[in-house]
Simulated scan of single mutants.
Amino acid sequence: MEFIEGKLNEEKVFEGLVFPKTLNPSICNGTTELLVKMIEEKREWLSEILKLHNAILFRGFNVSSPEEFRQVVEAFDWEEMPYMGPTNRVMVTNRIYNANEAPLHQFINFHHEMFLTKQYPSKILFLCTQPSPEGGETCILPSHIVVSKMEKEIPEFVSELEKKGFMFKIKTANVNSNAILGTTWKSYLNTEDEVEAKKRSMEKLGCNSVEFNEDGSAEFVYGPLNPIREFEGKRVWFIPIVRHSANKKDTRTSFGDGTPLPSKGLETYKNILDKVCVDIKWEKGDVMLLDNLSVQHGRRPAKPPRSVFVSLCK
C-alpha cells in the first residue's frame, strides 16, 4: 500500500518544497496497525522525504493513545533520546512523554528541542489525541529559511551576532510547577548538591556558570554562543534570541561583550518567525515528525481540553 500525498490549507512552500509534507492512507479509515506497517516498509523513503521537507504530517491513521503512538515511534527503528530540560514532563509509557504542559493560555515560543543541552534529539514526533476547541496549534518553521531571510533583511546584525556571539541566562523555578520553565535545578540535574550540580551543568548543558539564588532558584549562564549552527551543510538558526519563558525575568540576552541586542534586530527576527511559521491545526489521531536539527516548534495559546504527546529520537 502507498501513502497518498495530502494538502493542508496552512502549508507553505520554501525553495520549491512544501512544508510540512502531508501523507494520508489510500483507504478511508486508516489505522495505527496500517501506519506501523507502512513505516516499516518505507523507512528509507520516509527518511528521504524528511530530509527534503524537514516535517511530515501523518493524517488519517487514527492513532488514539500513547501506547499506539509508541508502536509508531518504534516502527522507525530510531534510538530513544531521554528528555532533559527545564520543563516538567512525565513519561506516560515507554518512550512517550506528555508535551509541555504549561498553562494553555500561554504561547510557547519557537525553539529546537533540548537546545540548552550538549546532546539533543535529531528527530521529534508528536501525537494529538485531543485537539483544542480553540487555538492550541503546534507552530513549526524551517530554521534555515530564518537564516537566509535574516541575512537578507538585516545582514549587519547577523554578522555582528556571529562575530561577538550572544549571552543568555535561564532562570529555573524554585518550586516544580507546570510553568514553561517550571523545573527546579535539583530536578533538572537530579541532585541536591550544588557542587555536583555545577559539575553536571558543565558536562550536560554546556553552560559557562551556574548561580544559585537564596530563593532556591538558579541561573544558568550561556555564551558567548553563535546561534547559527551547521548541520549537513545547512545553516540553521538553532538557538533562539528571544525569551523562551512567559516571564521576562526568567531569560535575559545580550551580545557576547555584554552590550544589548538592538531592538531592530530582535523585531526583525520576530517578524521573520511570524512570516515563515506554519500553524498546524491538529486533528485527532494526527502524528507529526520533525527534523529537530532543521525545524523549530512552539505552541499557540489554547482553550482546554488539549492532549498532545511527544517522543524524542537520537
Results as ranks from 00 to 15, higher is better:
E2V: 03
F3E: 06
L8E: 11
E11D: 15
E15G: 06
E15F: 13
P20K: 12
P20I: 04
K21P: 01
P25Q: 02
E41C: 02
E44V: 05
W45R: 12
S47I: 06
L50Q: 10
K51P: 00
K51F: 13
K51D: 15
A55S: 14
L57T: 01
F58A: 00
F58K: 01
F58S: 00
G60F: 01
N62K: 05
V63I: 13
E67M: 05
E74M: 14
E74C: 10
W78H: 12
E79C: 12
G85V: 11
P86H: 11
V90E: 14
V92Y: 09
N94K: 15
R95C: 11
R95W: 09
E101T: 14
H105P: 02
Q106H: 10
Q106W: 12
Q106V: 03
F107E: 15
N109F: 13
F110L: 14
L116M: 07
T117K: 00
P121A: 06
K123Q: 13
L127H: 07
T129W: 11
S132H: 03
S132W: 04
S132P: 09
G136Q: 09
E137F: 05
E137A: 13
E137L: 04
V146T: 12
S148R: 15
E151F: 12
E153I: 06
P155G: 04
P155H: 08
S159K: 15
E162N: 08
M167D: 06
K171G: 00
N174T: 06
V175W: 01
N178V: 08
I180C: 09
I180R: 11
L181T: 10
G182P: 04
W185V: 05
Y188M: 14
N190W: 00
K199W: 03
R200A: 04
L205C: 13
S209V: 00
G216C: 10
A218R: 06
P224T: 09
L225D: 14
L225G: 14
G233K: 01
G233M: 03
K234G: 01
W237S: 04
W237I: 04
F238E: 00
I239Q: 03
P240V: 09
P240T: 10
R243T: 15
R243Y: 09
H244P: 00
N247W: 11
P260G: 04
L261I: 07
P262M: 07
P262A: 04
G265Y: 07
E267L: 14
K281D: 10
E283Y: 09
D286F: 00
M288V: 07
L290E: 08
H297S: 05
H297G: 05
R299Y: 06
R300W: 03
R300Q: 12
P305H: 08
S307G: 05
V308F: 04
S311N: 12
L312K: 02
K314W: 07
